[in-house]
Amino acid sequence: MKMLLTVDFPHEPFNTLVRTGQAAAVIDRIMDSIRPEAAYFTEQDGHRCGIFVVEVASQAAVPAIAEPFFLNFNANCKFRIVMSPIDLQEAGLDELGKRWG
Rank of each mutant, 00 (worst) to 15 (best):
L71V: 05
R48A: 12
T20Y: 07
N76Q: 11
K98P: 01
H47K: 07
T42L: 09
V56W: 04
R19C: 07
L93D: 01
K98M: 10
N15G: 00
A24L: 11
A60M: 11
A39N: 09
R29D: 15
L4C: 05
E12N: 12
I65V: 14
V7S: 06
F69R: 10
L5E: 12
H11T: 03
I30Y: 12
F70I: 12
E43D: 06
V18N: 09
I65C: 09
I51F: 10
I34Q: 00
A24H: 14
V82N: 02
I86F: 06
A39K: 09
L88H: 10
W100C: 09
E12Q: 13
S58A: 15
Y40M: 13
A60Q: 13
D87V: 01
H47I: 00
Q22D: 13
T16L: 14
G21V: 06
R19Q: 15
N15L: 07
N15P: 01
E67R: 15
V26I: 15
P36M: 04
A91T: 09
K78W: 00
D32S: 14
L71A: 13
I81V: 11
P36E: 03
V62A: 01
L71C: 07
T16A: 15
P68L: 10
A75K: 01
R35F: 04
I51V: 15
A38L: 08
V56F: 01
A60Y: 11
A64M: 03
F70D: 03
F73R: 02
F70G: 04
P10T: 00
T42W: 03
G50A: 15
F14W: 11
G46T: 02
F14I: 08
P36N: 05
L88N: 10
G21H: 01
I30M: 11
F70V: 12
L88K: 10
Q59T: 14
D8M: 05
P36V: 03
D28C: 02
A25H: 11
C77K: 06
V82R: 00
G21F: 06
G101P: 11
W100T: 14
D28G: 03
G101M: 07
A75H: 03
D87R: 05
D32R: 11
P10A: 02
M1V: 12
P63G: 04
I27V: 15
G97S: 09
M1G: 14
A60D: 15
I81L: 09
Y40N: 06
M1I: 08
V62T: 06
R29E: 15
A91D: 02
T6I: 11
Y40A: 05
R29T: 13
D32K: 14
M1W: 04
H47T: 01
N72D: 14
F41I: 08
M3F: 08
A91G: 01
G46Y: 00
R99S: 06
D8E: 07
F70K: 09
A64T: 12
A91K: 03
L5V: 15
F79D: 07
E43C: 00
N15T: 13
V18G: 06
P36R: 03
V62N: 04
I27M: 10
Q44S: 11
A57D: 12
K98D: 06
V7P: 12
N76Y: 06
P85V: 08
G92I: 04
F69W: 13
E43V: 07
M3C: 12
E37Q: 13
H47G: 03
